[in-house]
Design a protein around this nucleic acid. Sequence first.
RNA 1: GGGUUCUUAGCUCAGUUGGUUCAGAGCACCUCGUUUACACCGAGGGGGUCGGGGGUUCGAAUCCCUCAGGACCCACCA
Length: 891
Amino acid sequence: MSISTKYDPASIEDKWYNHWMENGFFKAEVNPDKEPYSIVIPPPNVTGVLHMGHMLNNTIQDILIRKARMEGKEACWVPGTDHASIATEAKVVAMLREKGIKKSDLSRDEFMKHAWEWKEKYGGIILEQLKKLGASCDWDRTAFTMDEGYYKAVIKVFVDLHKKGYIYRGLRMINWDTEAQTALSNEEVIYKEDGEKATLYSVRYQIKGTEEYVTIATVRPETILGDAAIAVNPKDKRYTHLIGKKAIVPFVNREIPIITDEHVELDFGTGCLKVTPAHDPNDYEIGQRHDLEVIDTINLDGTLNEACGIDKYVGLDRFKVRKLIVKDLEEAGHLVGTEDFITRIGRSERTNTVVEPKLSLQWFINMKDISRKAHAAVMEDDVLLFPSKFKNTYNHWMENVRDWCISRQLWWGQRIPAYFYGQGEDDYVVAETMEEALQLAREKSGKADLDVANLKQDEDVLDTWASSWLFPQAVFDGFNDDCFDKETGKIIKGKNPDLDYFYPTNTLVTAPEILFFWVARMIIAGYEYNGEKPFKNVYLTGIVRDKKRRKMSKSLGNSPDPLDLIKQYGADGVRTGMLFSSPAGNDLLFDEKLVEQGRNFSNKIWNAFRLVTGWEVKDIPQPEENKLAIEWFESRLNQSIAELEDHFGKFRMSDALMTVYKLVWNDFCSWYLEWIKPEYQQPIDQVTLDKTIALFEQLMKVLHPFMPFITEELWHGVKERSNDPIITSAWPQAGSFDKSILVSADLLFEITTNLRNLRNSKGLSPKENLELLVKTKNESAIKAISASIQKLANVSSVSFAQAKPDNCSSFVLGGDEYFIPLNLEIDVEAEKQKLEEELKYAKGFLMSVEKKLSNEKFVSGAPAQVVENEKKKKADAEAKIKAIEESLRSL
RNA sequence: GGGUUCUUAGCUCAGUUGGUUCAGAGCACCUCGUUUACACCGAGGGGGUCGGGGGUUCGAAUCCCUCAGGACCCACCA
């Protein structure tokens, strides 16, 4: 045999991927004769690189799409990338900085030119990497969320939602990233799990006209200069006498009122809260309730401004000022004390800077009404979440849905199509183009002489999610002018064949982290624009962690390079490795050993192939036992396929793989092949070989979605079939199976195992021939499998006996006794002990069964079937006990 | 603080409506084996009483209560 004993993935993976590509097997188009099956990829960041999370996620998608393709569906997997405005802009800014270019020195157009250049250069690397994994995406459909059509779709939706009254502009306290200088949505603010160390400062404020002081506690003393009030709880008796009086802000000597508000907690700090409406969300709300002045003392870049009233702080960073002011307060005698304090500081997901609450004019989508159908869709199982536990989370979020801040103070993204023609807050119009805007502006302002020069487009761009939430429609060009009706704000059916055919998509595979960021919003957009869900199933993968349960991250250095892994273990090995340990909805504890197991599995398959294709065929009769082996494996295969379908139906991918894994390794390799394998260097009969190859082909098919490369290679290895690749072959259907054959084979396997065990314990070589004598009431059952017993257990003869011959070892199965004559000294004591242990167990078991059966309440209360089963158990146990006792007696 | 959820062999997990020996799987582990597809292998084996306690029931890993310990989501105390 000249083929290597090791499977070498590197030598074939590119070959087959190119073959699939060249033949257009990944392409999907409208085909009325076929049922569509579509998946849209969760678009990775355009400048991102492949990490383990992508590997898991895309492996699952590829499995689903390949299976659907084999099932004869028009399988369409749309790939794409996301422009990821903050992340990408940050990268571009950093790149420019390295070149010595400041963003602030560039015009918007110049910056965008750099950004596009960057995108062209680095964008899409991640998609190339996905090809190495075997991803069978329809690459001709590759989408980008800033493509021209996509860009227009986003703008159309903004205009439409504004028209429908869902979009509004408002002054709100938002999360401000002082480094990226943009607003962030709540979801983009990260709080460290255990909080962060901070210092809680106690500062005293003098009460006007007295020598009395109130002491407040704060972690942000730099905001003192923006204080507008001191608040106490109305129930707090300690301060009742101060209510209505004025306190004096240190240094600036502003007089601020002492007010009461329920928000203040009695037992925190001193019970006095300084209220800084400009720099704290809660304080802002208190300010609203009490009509307090908003004194904004912090600039967009995090430095203090003139409003703080102290010249020496102006222009300094908030954290520097904090240090300075603490020192100043101390010197002035206002600092009463400090203590260490653990608090939860919000940081920007993208830049990691401490988020500054900031009042600012931003654009929002009012979520309450627009999300109603999307909420119901999940609750009523129109959209299914896997695992379903996320239904609760989804429900909770949707019930408390908050308005979505969609403006970002960046350049890289879809620019908000709002055009201002005056200084007033309301002096703007929203339109797709400058021309339309001009017309609208003339109408709204009543100034017919307005021209383009008088219009100023909003500088901000939209949140990235405000583009990716349209992904399922936009990738099929669902907002083009033909099918998107601007009057009704709906996508009309019958105008876009692609969309009509592939939408709604079937399954979305993504991470739970973006259930609200993305999934919920896509569902909202689906109902808003198509009046229909964007996908039927949502499979939520776990997070890939290392074996210590730490999240994989660059800084920890615990994340392997996926491409290295593929090089080392093969794409199929990596795919199966990832899947071995990813139960639905649970985190994947990644361990390279899993990938090793995947590689080993590839090798096992490879060697089964070598065996099956290595025999010489001769015109000889088919051995009796081979017929049984084939019948048995056919039944096992059908049983396994049924099980596999069940797992797939429930999105239990790990279990699905495990079913196939065990079928191949245990049933096919360990039992079937040993069963039919000819003696060394002996030929095989034609019938068995043909059947075996056919069975092997079936195995390759069920393996193909999991392991596309090796299965394609071996599919072509067993037969010349240039125009008939496995990727488009027909998925096997689960046929019926003969239960009696499975039962019969189980007995065969049990006998074989017992005999192997005997050899093991007696130190007998597997090569040594043994004889088997059976005492049974059902000789025909043994006769049916005796040839197979001889083959599998290396037994020279199987015959029947009425009593135990001398010098035998024995075992008991069911009510039957099996004797193996040995030319050895039998250790009678050991045999006895073994049998007595079995007897003890059997008797104990019988007792528990009898106890149940003698319980009248059980017999009358339990269903007839259950009682019947107990009776059978009793009879079986009795037969077994009898056989063991006989064995013991004859020792 | 509000909510959701989990705790089954050394590890990662199955265990559908309580009842077929339901206590399972894969990996790991131990013993033996250089057998003629594969040592990236083969054969065999030992491990848990289902987080603790209480209850319902003829019967509970499976239902209820309680305690302990995780995880996640939301909100957030200056």
